[in-house]
Structure formats: C-alpha cells, structure tokens
Design a protein around this nucleic acid. Structure first.
Lengths: 144, 144
DNA sequence: AAACTCTACTACCGTGTGGCAATATAATGA
DNA sequence: TCATTATATTGCCACACGGTAGTAGAGTTT
C-alpha cells in the first residue's frame, strides 16, 4: 500500500498551461520531457486525430495533389479541406506549393508514413489480441 | 489545370460516419485503408493528443503505478486521472490490474514508446528546420 | 460499526472544433 | 473589363471534451 506524503497535492489548476514552442524537444525519448515538448507532441497527435485529415494524408501518399484533386478523392467539402490543409500545414505535416492558379500540397516529411505504419502494426496487434480474448470467452461459454 | 468530371461532387454529408470497430485493419500501410481503419487510427491519435494523458503515459514509462502515485507525479486532479486512465485503457494503451485496494496501470504495449520516440524525432527535425529558416530570414535582414 | 483510503462516476460549465453555407480573394481566360 | 476557376476565409451551429466538485462504492483499519 503506497504512502502519501501530503494530504492534498494542492492541485495547481490544470488550465493555464499554454506553451511557447521552440527549444522544448531536447533530449528525445518520452521520459523526462518538458511540458512544452509534451504539448508539441500532443498537438502533433491532435492534427492526426481526425478521420478527414487522415483521409487527406492518405490522398497525398501517392504524391503531391492540388486542393481540387483532394476534394474529389476524399469527397469532403471544399471549406473543410481548405481548413484541414491549413492545419496540417501549420503542424508541418504537409508542405504548400503554389503552381499557377492551383495550390499543391505534399507530405512534408516521408517519415510520417513510417509512423503511420507503426501505428497500424500496433493497432493490428491490439485487434488480434482482442479477437483472441473473445475466442477464449466463447470457448469458455461452450464448455459450460 | 485539372479537369473536373462533375460540377458538384454531391457532397455526401460528412457527419454520419460512426464506425463499428473490428476487421478494419487488414492490409497495413497507410494507403488503401478502409474508413473503419482510419477511424481506429484517428481514435488512437486522439487518445494521445492531450497533454494530461501524455503526462500519465510518461509516468508509466518507469513501470506500473497505481492511481494515487500517478496523481502525485502528474499533479492532476483525481477525477481527471481516473477519466483519462479509463480512456487510455479503452484505447488499449494501458492495462488495468487490481491489487488489493489499489489499481495499478501499466503501458499495455511497449511499442508505444518506440512510436513516441519516432514522433520526437520527427518533431525535432521540424523544429530544427524552422530555426534554420528563421536564421536565414534574419541573415537576409541584416545584409539589407 | 465507524472512520478512512482509494478509485470510479456523475453533473455541470466553458472551450474548442468539425461541418456547412456564404463570401472573399487570386489567378486565368475571353 | 468581365466571367470563370481555384482556394481561402468567415460566421454559425452543434457537439465533443477537459477540468472540477461532489458523490458513490469497495476495501481496510480501528
């Protein structure tokens, strides 16, 4: 049973942590990360936490595309695509390049796909694990 | 200039895509992912897109901890920690284990740290890139 | 049993944000 | 110049979600 040093940790209010970017990511590795670095990470994940934006990223997997092409491939609304692209660009996920009248976007850092593949692996493992557990459950059921 | 086949892509409303999990993640690799798989990914990222939850994950880097320990290490409120832990557990990020009166949580899949490290790398690259660009800008400024 | 600890849950509030329609801006062509 | 196409922006609404206080329940100690 763990012992507590102080009764109430005095709970410094959890709002009021806005972060000024930069410096932040020094020593890599998830442990010993400054709140700023954590905020950077959180923001990065947040950008990738919407199906629409992931759709857009998928679209760009096969190369740079302009907004109209992205709209057609994803079936998303124009305003949304524009908004999402802006967010993705600000997060440094995609790069913007104007060619004549059109604006082409591309994945800024191909590392992203590596990352997504890794996530896919993790999720696959989880799904498999879950289905195994379900199997075991149903087996227990039948042998009753 | 890209040609458009139809004037208005008829915009199937973008709400009304709730996803039933499972199957989804077949062929790994970010391209050719079903909407269900994308939704899984998005949800995974969403769980990691909050500073508080990342703090909790960091806390668990050094091994399983009970809720009180997590509260003390992070300084978060008890209700929040409980809520976040529930979310992390549902997403399969952490595993729950009751020992007597305490409940211990641990990272379910150590792969997670690998993933976070990769994200750190990506973010580091981005930050470095940005600072380089800033440097170039200021140099342009001075040589004016 | 009563008091205490640990964890979970509920209700509430404020904020952030996705989708949408309408409008604005920019570049091109007639 | 005017019309057209491509992209960006704004305002609005609905909804999801984080933080908080209060409460509940389970286990432990006295």
């Amino acid at each position: 049973m763990p012992t507590k040093s102080a009764k109430k940790p005095v709970a410094v209010p959890e709002k009021a942590r806005k972060v000024n970017v930069s410096q932040a990511v020094d020593e890599c590795g998830i442990s010993k990360l400054t709140p700023e670095a954590l905020s950077l990470m959180a923001n990065f994940f947040k950008v990738l936490s919407e199906v629409s934006r992931l759709q857009i990223v998928c679209t760009l997997k096969t190369g740079a595309k302009n907004v109209t092409e992205i709209i057609e491939e994803t079936g998303l609304g124009q305003a949304n695509v524009s908004k999402h692209l802006k967010m993705l660009a600000q997060a440094g996920v995609v790069a913007r390049e104007q060619r004549g009248i059109c604006v082409y976007y591309r994945i800024a850092n191909p590392f992203l796909f590596e990352l997504c593949d890794l996530v896919c692996d993790v999720l696959t493992m989880q799904v498999e694990q879950q289905s195994q557990q379900l199997q075991q459950l149903s087996q227990l059921r039948q042998s009753r």
